[in-house]
Amino acid sequence: MPRYLAGRFAQALAVLWAAYTVAFVILHILPSDPITLQLSASGADINTLTPAQIHTLKARYGLDDPIVSQYLHHLWDALHGKLGMSLTQNVSVGSLIGDKLPATLLLTAVALPITLVLGFGTALLATYVQWRPARVLLARLPTVGVSLPQFFVGLLLIQVFAFSLSWLPATGHQSGTGIILPAVTMALPGSAMLAQLLTRSLSDTWSEPYITTARAKGLTRAAVQLRHALRNASLPALTLLGVVVGYTVTNSVVVEAVFSRSGIGALTQQAVLGQDVPLVQAIVLVASVLFVGVNLIVDLLYSLLDPRVATAARLA
């Protein structure tokens, strides 16, 4: 077990490093450099500056060093928690992200139970209901959920629940109910994937011998499903929940744009619109830390819930 833990930890660190490096390569080696990008985004032309001015700017952001030393420098700083200065907003990237992250994490925290209820509910119904049309409909429902663009779902929810029915506010942070619609929007794709996965693993489990035994003992379908099938079928769902939480940053980009909320997703949109290279680089790092961290936790939970996982890893 300790060897398994150490291995998983090293793997997680390697993934983090690789994600940081890939983002660095994309942002720094592709044709344009950050200064040109930033100037063009703010409407200025690089040609209007004198070479001396450009040089001063580059020196200020450390862009006149060779690319490899820049990379090592940035990596060293990132390791020490220093993520640099934003090019568009004269604040350190770290404090920007620190300001915005809690709102988005709260959104994820509200979205997670909704994901669970919708996902498990749909899957359990889809495998329990025996009336064929309903069964087919429930089985197809997740595909619909996966296919609908998040911005469409968000706008539809606003239109129905905020404007037509006036039950919930469309935007805003002030009232507690303002978080419901964005959270549902955020939860929908994840719950659709969860339902797909669970429906499949539930119907796989349904053909296992121990299910036949349980049925032969005289247990009802519902009891077998809840007590025997669901327990074993829901283990893979843990991985998916890890993905849902790990993708917080990416999921929030569209949702926060639709509901005009502030948070890490809205910050990402601003960073890309302003072509703010240090900010984008830092957001990629934060997103991967979140993703890798959550997946590490999920893996460890897995090996606790099912010791065979660690054993299998050692054997393989």
Binding site: Q11, Q196, L235, P236, T239, D299, S303, V309, A316
Partner: peptide, 20 residues
């Protein structure tokens, strides 16, 4: 299954082996 499947989203390195 018709949508971004889990295996597509989870990088192989971070995916735990599915036990069952």
């Amino acid at each position: 299954p018709g949508g971004p499947a889990v295996a597509d989203l989870v990088p192989a390195g971070t995916r735990p082996p599915e036990p069952r």
